[in-house]
Design a protein around this nucleic acid. Sequence first.
DNA 1: TATGAATGAGTGTTCATTCAT
DNA 2: CATGAATGAACACTCATTCAT
Lengths: 187, 187, 187, 187
Amino acid sequence: MSEAKQRILDTAGQLFAERGYELVGINELIEKSGVAKATFYQHFRSKEKLCAEWLRHAATESEKSARALLDSDLPATEKVVQKFNRVRDYLLSSEFRGCAFSNTATVMTEDNEVREVVRDYKAGVRLFWQALALELRRDPSAARALGDAFFLLFSGAVTEAQNAKAIWPVESAKAAALALCGEPSSS
Amino acid sequence: MSEAKQRILDTAGQLFAERGYELVGINELIEKSGVAKATFYQHFRSKEKLCAEWLRHAATESEKSARALLDSDLPATEKVVQKFNRVRDYLLSSEFRGCAFSNTATVMTEDNEVREVVRDYKAGVRLFWQALALELRRDPSAARALGDAFFLLFSGAVTEAQNAKAIWPVESAKAAALALCGEPSSS
Amino acid sequence: MSEAKQRILDTAGQLFAERGYELVGINELIEKSGVAKATFYQHFRSKEKLCAEWLRHAATESEKSARALLDSDLPATEKVVQKFNRVRDYLLSSEFRGCAFSNTATVMTEDNEVREVVRDYKAGVRLFWQALALELRRDPSAARALGDAFFLLFSGAVTEAQNAKAIWPVESAKAAALALCGEPSSS
Amino acid sequence: MSEAKQRILDTAGQLFAERGYELVGINELIEKSGVAKATFYQHFRSKEKLCAEWLRHAATESEKSARALLDSDLPATEKVVQKFNRVRDYLLSSEFRGCAFSNTATVMTEDNEVREVVRDYKAGVRLFWQALALELRRDPSAARALGDAFFLLFSGAVTEAQNAKAIWPVESAKAAALALCGEPSSS
DNA sequence: TATGAATGAGTGTTCATTCAT
DNA sequence: CATGAATGAACACTCATTCAT
C-alpha cells in the first residue's frame, strides 16, 4: 500500500468516525491527507468504496479484539463486564459518537457495499455474544436467546449513549446483562 | 397554521422518514409540497428548524400513544408485548427505516436544536419504560433498572432490525423483555 | 423568458456554434453569460437540454427562412442558387464551422433529445429540397430523386467546406445542382 | 514498431471509430491496450498525436483500397456503384457512425495536426473521384466537375446516413451519381 | 402572505499529462 | 523499454439560502 493511500485511509477513518460519512467531503479529506484529488481517485474508485474499505478494516480489528477476549480464560461474566467497559471507554473518549457501522449504514441509500459490510460486521458481533452466552447456558436454545439479549442491550446502550451524550446507558445495559447471567434456570 | 405550512410539514415528515434528513433536499421538498421556495422560508427559518418542528410533532404523537398504552388496563406484560408488536409493525411497513430520532441526530453537527428534541424524546421514552416497570416491581430502584433494560432492549432491537433489514431483533428483544418481567425476586 | 435565460441562450448559441458542444464547458458559458452556476441550472436542467433548446430555436429560424425562399416567386433554379449562396455566405462568415446540427449530433452518445432535434431538422431540410424539386419535375418520383440529390450535394458541400476550410465545395455543389435542374427528360 | 505500440494503435482505432475522439479517455485506452500510462506516453507524445497517427494509417489503407478499385478493369459506372456499396456496408456494420475523418476534425480546436491529416485525406478522396470521372468525360473540366459532384454526393450521403441512422442517403446518392454518369453531353 | 429569479459555495468525479524509479 | 504513483485543472451538477417584487 502506497504511503498516500495509507494517509487517506487514516484521515478518512478519523473524519468519518468523528463526523459521519455525509458530513465529510472529498475536498476536506484530500486536503487533510495532503494528496491531490486525482491521487485519491487513483486509490479509491469512489467515496463509497473508501468508506467500505475503512469499515472493513475496522471490522477486522474489532473482531480480532473480540476473539481475544473470548479466548481469554476469564470467567464468562467477567468477559461481559469487560466488553461493556471497553465500549464505555471508547464512547467516553470519542464524545459519544456511537457505532460507526450503524451510523454509516443509516445514511446509505439502498443496498450497497457499505451496508453489506455493516451487516457482516453486525452478524459477527451477534455471534460473539452468542458464543459468550454458550459459556453460561448449557441449552443451545437458551444460549442463543441470552446471546441476543446481550447483543441488543449492547447495541441499545451504544445508540442511547450517543443520543444522550451520557454513559448511563452502558452502565444500565451492563447491569441488565449481568443480571441475566446469573439466572440460568429461571425461564 | 396556514395550509401551506401544514402541507410542507406533512411532506417533510414523509420524506425525512423515508430517506433521512440529508437525502432530502429543499427543492424536492417544496416541489412535492406545491409551494414556492420563498414561501417555505417564510414558515421555517431553515431546513434544520423544519426538521426540529417535524420531530417535535412526531414526539408529541408518540408520547400520546405511549401514554394511552400506559393508561390502559392491560396487564403490564401485555403492555410490553404490545409496545414491541407496534414497533414490529412499523418496521415491517417502513422497510426497516429505524428510529427517525436516532437517525436524524446522527447526521446533525454539534449540539443543535434537533439533537435537543431527540434527547427530550428519548428521555420521554425512557420514562415510559420505567413507568411500565413500576407496574412490575415494587422497589423503585429495581423498577428503574428494569425500565432501562426494557428501554435499551427496545432501542437495540430497532437499530439492529434496521441494520439487518430483518425483524428477528424485535422478536428477540421482546422475548428477553418478557423473561425479565417474570423474575421479580432474582436480583 | 427571463433576461438571464435569454443571455445564456445567446451565449450558448455563439459558443456552441463557434467551437462545438464538447469544447464549451458550463463554467465558461456562465461566466460569459454573467450568471451564477445555480442560475443556469434553474433555467436548464442540463447542458444537453440547453443544447437541444438552442438547436430547436436555430431549426425554427432556418425553417422560416427556407419557407420564405420557397414561397418567393423566383424561378426554381434561382431558388437553388440563392440557397447555395446563403450557405456560402454563412460559411465564409463563420470560418467554415460547418453544420451545427450535424456537428452536434456527432458528439452525442446514444439516442437523446438532441439527436431527435437534429433528425427532425434534417428531415425538414430534405423536405425543402424536395418541394423545390417539385417545381422542376412533374413526375413525383423524379422530383423526390432530384430533391434528394440537391439535399445530399448541399450537405456534402457544407461538410467538405468545413474540412477544407475553403468555399469550392459549395460552388461545385451549386454547379452540379444547376446542371441537374436543366435535364428534366434525360433519365 | 513495438508490440505495445501496435496494441495501442489497434485499440485506439477501434475505440475512436466506435465512439469518437472526445468520448474515449486515455485511461480506458491504456487499460484496454494492457499497457501502463507512461508506456503510452513513451510511444505517443499526446492523445492528439495518437489520433493523428491512427488517421494517417486509416487514410493509407483507404487510399490503397481506392487505388485498387480505380486500377481494376471494371467499367467506370460499376466502380461508382462499388464505391457506394462499400460505404453502405461499412455504415450498416458500424451503426452509421459516419466518416471518422470528418467526425474527428469537428472536435479539434484550431488548425492542428489532425485537421491537416483530414484535409490531406479528403483531398485524396476528391482526387479518386476526379480520376474516376476522367473515365467518363473526355473534357478535363467536365471531368473535374463530375468528380466533385460524385465526391460531394458521397460525402453528403455518409453525413446524412449518420444523422438519420438510415441507409437511404447512400442509395439516393448512388442513384444520383449514376444518373450523372450517363449524361456526357448535357452541360 | 406569497412568489420566481438569483446566488456563492459546495458536491463527487474525470481529464490528459508528468515524474521518479 | 517499461512502470505505478501523483498531479492541477477542469468537468457537470446540487446545496440551502436570500432578494426584489
